[in-house]
Amino acid sequence: MFGFFKKFRKKSPWILHYNTGSCNGCDIEIMACLGPKYDLERFGIINKGNPKQADILLVTGPVTKRARARLLRLYMQMPEPKVVVAVGACACTGGVFRHMYNVENGIDRFIPVDVYIPGCAARPENIIEGIKKAIEIWERKQKEKVEVPKVLKEIPDVETLDRREIISKLEEKYSERLVIEEDEK
């Protein structure tokens, strides 16, 4: 039964784009991908802008200290199965902002990243190729398995925690409410 629905994943990936303090170069390129020239919508991709309905998280920027809790919050609000794509040198490693006092050198210190797209700014062709790779990875993911943000890796038995517990651990760590009132189904 569920094998049947799985086939439709590659036909309708919805993306969520989050800017963690980038210079806007990569964001412009993502917008170019969605525009008439590269037209990602022909693959069924729309920029949903809503974590609860999105499947692919496109992150640009080096993660400033103010953006990190928001990034974790968006990540935890996305329902499984989901994939994360780091767009641009900044999101991969920190890029030109690396080792500055206010940045965290790339998103993979916080959340598990599936595809890295290099380039400053990443070219639209690269972004399309990266999203294609992301869809391939996404097709293999399970909806039951909750992926744990990397910041919690030092906690013992972290793999056995459920969504709720992960969220409360994150809230403890950053002393901030991440997800407001939510039951799990």
């Binding site: 569920f2 049947f4 629905f5 799985k6 086939k7 439709f8 994943r9 036909k11 309708s12 919805w14 008439p36 037209d39 919508e41 022909r42 693959f43 069924g44 609860k52 309905q53 499947d55 609000q77 329902p79 499984e80 199965p81 909806k143 039951e144 009132e181 939510e182 039951d183 799990e184 189904k185």
Partner: peptide, 27 residues
């Protein structure tokens, strides 16, 4: 808009994909 656009059956693809997503209820 001079784009190619999604296939006409796209809403149904979206429909089937949403079936296979985890549903997070608020209440």
């Amino acid at each position: 808009q001079n784009r190619q656009g999604p296939p006409i059956l796209q809403p149904f693809y979206d429909f089937f994909k949403l079936t296979d997503k985890r549903a997070l209820q608020v209440h």
